[in-house]
Every structure is written in structure tokens, then in C-alpha cells.
Design a protein around this nucleic acid. Structure first.
Lengths: 344, 344
DNA sequence: AGAAGTAATGGTAGCGCTATCATGACAGCG
DNA sequence: CGCTGTCATGATAGCGCTACCATTACTTCT
């Protein structure tokens, strides 16, 4: 009769979701005990836990993680910030991260910077607002504000992809060394005149680091190391077009060292269409070790980077850190493998 | 001297983050006015807004979105649940979603079911716990519990990829029609004996729907429609292997209709290696319209599906819905295009 | 002139959960 | 027998923010 008393009707609940208090009431315990039954099962008696779980099931209770996070300031969210989703490399890292993190009950908050460091800063701010348990960024380069924020936010930071002097944790590989590795291979094969082809090296600065390695090797041998930088994203199409460009700008070229397999495969397939033999007329090398390279003829010489493993390892180290265990190593070199095909 | 009074020290704050109250105090306004200055800028005077923003900047305030979401029960998080990240198709849809949603200030919570409907249910539960503004799922198939939860949770639901009788909003294409389209093309080309090759059709049931379309066309012409179902994920490698299998099991086959371009391209490249001419010895057709298909020789006949557009359109419709505008259409057919190459 | 609206601001009281401390019951100890 | 320790549970009081209602100072309208 006296329900909905105006004075008592101060509730602001907008959803009529079941709350933990209702579950607790149904189970005949206090809300805090119900909370413990769900989050610290070993801290309540077996019988209590049973009856709480039974009530959860019966009422269809869905925990409000927002409220839980606010109260505990722990969210089990992990922010993952990548510069691109078009480039399958980042997707494979995400895959490795996700597989491992989801298994441990973490969720991924995904951010895409489109290679814009200011955008990255904004994303970091937003994600910090969600009290993420940790942040993962692709790469070691940030703008100053972002770097400061990351360094001082108090959450674990994992920087993946490249190896170097990171803010906190770091899993990656040495891109300069990878560039050196491939250049050495090409020199060993006897090529003297070669061009490095990359796409937007200011964005894909890791490809730029590989060029540095490439250049160092060639200079040491007294060879020129011309660079062709494309203004498009790396793609099969861009690779095909760059082949023509290289043959025009550097007609005597014997080998092309591409910044990635998409470009390399595009060029290789284009060479085939034009009746050029690879590596007879022109040798072609890539980077990444995409499956495609091993299915085209001739098989592509490339450098295999363990992308999913990188994600998995990063996730494992983060989990170790989050569970309070001492970190095995702050830095992990996942290394790379030269995969000699038939295209060089 | 008298700081840290035991009686006053009830605070449970673990982080020493700046709060909105501190910003408000610094700006000489009440917390609620500061809140409005940030979230409803048009509801405060220009001078107030200026001084609040100035304090935000000076103190380095990062809004606690968890607290905001709890208070307002709006999170600006959008859950995106896909069955796989290996399959680039889903990544492209995510890309389209993200591009559009991030621009509107929404963040993506990413979930991967690995084609497991129970896992999907768990993810939906978790994401509902985050009071997501909306949920996007790839596909119309869910288990009963999941379907009930989605239908009753009160949030907008967007089901993408395929067209059909959805829970709420739906953007996709008709996969049965796509299968019919390609089969008709092959029949028109004069092929009589053809095999449909798919990978794990119980998982990739949309490929199964395309097979249904394929079969219907062939049956209508009085032709057999044998199916080869692989037990691996679709990949170049699987495509290459399936070619041998088809030639062994169905030696008289004239054409192979593959469930996707990865398989088709793998088979096409394998055929080349084996000295088979395409389409002379064997015709090959795919689905998706991946760039790779247009770079191999002969160019692959395939069906182009607008994956990024699908994501963008889905995001736009969701935003329209979330901003309270009436929805233009609950269902959108993004359609597909037959792309005739040289492989058929 | 008085009613009625609008714009800018603030006080209060939650959102649903969990950290913290307190309580009572019972075991083990010299 | 009192003392300390562990276990299971509960009462209280926030976490940081915003919805809701109230207040004040002005406009505008009939």
C-alpha cells in the first residue's frame, strides 16, 4: 500500500538488472559475503558458496563490473594500442595477446592510432580513465606527453614489436639487426647493386630501422644503398608499382630488399607477369615471413618474425607482473630467422 | 602535526589521481559544474568552462570513466565479438567499425570466441557487466542462453556478416545468394563437374550457406554437387592440399568452387607449381575478393564482399540508434559483386 | 505587474560494488 | 584459564562521478 512513497523513491536505477544484494538476500547472506563467494571463493564456507552460486544461477545475475572496478580500482581490462589494423602484423600480435589474456579473464580494450602519436596520447588518456590493469603499446616511440603519462601512471606498461630502452616491460626484436641480416645475405649471394624499398618510413619507422641496418652493411662493403620510399601503405599493389619505379630509377639493380612481404610478393608477382625471371633478372627479398611468400614461385626469401609468439610472451609477462610475481626479465628479445627462399 | 588523524583517515583511495572535485575546487566551482563543463559544455557559461578546462590542463586531470559510467550507466564502450582474428575478413569488419566508432568517442571492447558459442555467451555476460552501450556480434547464430541474454539486455544489438532475422539491427549479405551467384557463373561458363571445397563448415557456417546456394543451382541443372570439407582452417596451405585431394577423389572435375580466396589462391598457386593450367585443366573460383586474387596469374574469379563498408555501416547505424535518432532501417543488405577473373 | 519561462549553478544522494575493520565462535597453548 | 590465532561472517563507509531537484537571477509574455 505504502510502496512508492515519494520520500523513499530516491532510487536512480535505470536498469532493472539483478544486483548482488538481491542475490545475497536470496541466498540468505550479506552482500559482502556474496561478493566474497564470487571473487574469493576460498574465503567462504562451502555451503555458503553453493547457495550463493545457486542464487546467481537462478536469478540470472550478471555482475556489474563497472561498480566492482570502481570499488576495487582493478578492472581486468588491458588496453592494446596499435598503429594499424590493415597491417596483419599487428593483428597477429593482438591474436597472441588476446588468446593468453582472455584465458586469464582479462579483456582487451583495443585502440588504433593510425600512426598518429597525438591520437595515441588521447587513447592512453582514455584507457587510463578505465583504470586498465595494464597498457600494451606497439612500439617504443611516443610523444612527450604520452611518455610522461605512461611512465607515471603506475600501471604496468608493455611495449612490443621492437627491442630497446622501454618505459617498463619490453618484448620485441632488433629491427636494425634484421636489416643487417638480410643485407648480408644479399651481399653473400653476390649482389652489388640493390635498392631498399619501404612504404611511409616515418610511420613504419621499424622498416626505417631495418633500412639503417641494410645501409650499414652495404656501406661497410663500399656499396651504395639507395632508398625508394613509397607514399602509400605497403600492399601487393604498391609492391607491383614500386618494381617498375625501381627498374626505371635504377636500371642496373640486381636485387630489391623490400620492407615487408606484401611489397615483396607484389613485386614478385608483377615481375612474373612482365616475364622477368626472379632471381635471374632481379632478386627479391622481404620481411615478416607471411605464408604467401612460401606459396608463390619462386619462394620468397624473407625474415620470419614470431608475431603471435611476441603477443603471447608479452601477455605472459604482463600476467606474471600483475599477479605480483617478480618479473623474469623486463626485456625479451624474440629474435628472428632468415628464411632463404628461391627469390634471391 | 595532526595530519593522518586516525578518525579522519577513512579514505580508501589507492591511486593519488586528480579527481574532478579537485579540478572544481581549483576552478572555484562545484564538482557538478565541473562535470557539466566537461560533459555538457553548452550548459555552463563560457567563463566557467574556460576556467574548468584550464584547471583540467594545469592539474593533468584524467577523468575516471569507471566512476562516470557507474553514475550514469552509460559507458561509451562497444563490445565487438568475432569468432576469429586469423580470418582477415573479421579484422576488416572490425577496422570499419573502429574507424567510425572511435571518431565518435566510443571504444571497442574486443572479444574472440574461437567459433565457440559457449565462449560467446561468456563474453556477452562479461561485456554486459561493463554496461556496454551496444554489442556487435559476427553472425546471427547464438546458443539459447546467449540469444535470450542479448534479446533482453536492453542494449542495441548489431549482428553483422550475414543477412537474416536478427535480434535487433542487422547488416550483412546473403550468403546463399552469393553461392548461387558463383555457381551460376560456373554453369554459364559450361562447367558440368565441379566440387565445392570448404573448411570446417560447422564453424564457418556462412561458407556452408554458400554451399547451399551452390548446390541448389547445380541440382536445378541436374548436376551433382559434391562437397569436400577440410578439417583445417582455411589457408593457402589447406587450399594447396585440397587441390590434390579433389583431383584424387573426383578425377574428372572441371572446376572447383572454394569457400574463400585463401583456399582458392592456395590451390591456384599449387596448380601452377604442378604445371596444371588454370582454367584449362581446372577452373578455380573463390570468395571474398582479397587483393591477392588480383595479383596472381591468372586473376582469380571471386565474389567481392564489402567488409570494411559493412563495419562502417554497422557503426553508423549503431551511432544513429544510440543518439536517439530513429533508425533508418533495421536491416541492411550490403550486397556483393561477382568479380570475373581469368581463373574460370 | 504578476505569471511563467530560461539559464547558470549548487546540494544531496545515490550508482553497485568491495576494502576495512569489527565481531563472534572455536581451536591450540603453556 | 586466560591468551592469542584462525575462520566465517557482517556493518560501515566509501570508490569518483552524475541524476535529480532546488535555488537564484534574469527575461519574456499577456
Amino acid at each position: 500500500m505504502s510502496k512508492d512513497l515519494p520520500a523513499a523513491n530516491k532510487s536512480r536505477r535505470r536498469s532493472d538488472q539483478i544486483t548482488l544484494s538481491q542475490v545475497a538476500q536470496a541466498a540468505g547472506v550479506s552482500p559482502i559475503t556474496a561478493s566474497r563467494a564470487l571473487n574469493h571463493p576460498d574465503k567462504v564456507s562451502d555451503s555458503t558458496r553453493q547457495s550463493v552460486l545457486e542464487s546467481v544461477e537462478r536469478l540470472g545475475y550478471v555482475p556489474n563490473l563497472v561498480a566492482g572496478s570502481l570499488a576495487s580500482s582493478r578492472s581486468r581490462l588491458i588496453a592494446v594500442i596499435v598503429p594499424s589494423l590493415i597491417n596483419s602484423v599487428f593483428v597477429e600480435v593482438i591474436k597472441g595477446l588476446q588468446e593468453t589474456l582472455e584465458a586469464q579473464g582479462y579483456q582487451i580494450l583495443l585502440g588504433n592510432t593510425d600512426y598518429d602519436l597525438d591520437r595515441e596520447y588521447q587513447l592512453v588518456r582514455t584507457f587510463l580513465g578505465w583504470s586498465c590493469s595494464a597498457l600494451v603499446t606497439a612500439g617504443l616511440r611516443h610523444n612527450d606527453a604520452c611518455h610522461t603519462l605512461l611512465a607515471n601512471c603506475g600501471h604496468p606498461i608493455m611495449e612490443v614489436m621492437e627491442l630497446g630502452n622501454g618505459i617498463d616491460l619490453n618484448v620485441g626484436l632488433d629491427h636494425v639487426a634484421a636489416g643487417r641480416c638480410m643485407a648480408s645475405h644479399l651481399v653473400d649471394r653476390g649482389y652489388q647493386r640493390m635498392v631498399y624499398v619501404g612504404a611511409r618510413l616515418s610511420h613504419d619507422y621499424r622498416a626505417g630501422m631495418r633500412y639503417e641496418g641494410h645501409k650499414a652493411v652495404l656501406k661497410a662493403k663500399g656499396l651504395e644503398a639507395p632508398l625508394l620510399e613509397l607514399d602509400t601503405l605497403g600492399s601487393l599493389q604498391a609492391g607491383a608499382e614500386s618494381l617498375a619505379q625501381v627498374l626505371q630509377d635504377y636500371p642496373a639493380t640486381q636485387a630489391i630488399h623490400f620492407a615487408n612481404d606484401d611489397l615483396a610478393a607484389g613485386a614478385l608477382l608483377a615481375a612474373q607477369r612482365q616475364g622477368l625471371t626472379v632471381p635471374g633478372d632481379i632478386a627479391i627479398a622481404g620481411f615478416n615471413g607471411l605464408p604467401l611468400g612460401q606459396h608463390i614461385t619462386p619462394k620468397l626469401t624473407t625474415i620470419l618474425s614470431p608475431r603471435e609468439d611476441m603477443g603471447r610472451l608479452a601477455a605472459q609477462e604482463l600476467i606474471r607482473r600483475l599477479s605480483g610475481k617478480s618479473v623474469y626479465r623486463r626485456q625479451h628479445d624474440v629474435s628472428f630467422t632468415l628464411q632463404v627462399g628461391e627469390s634471391t
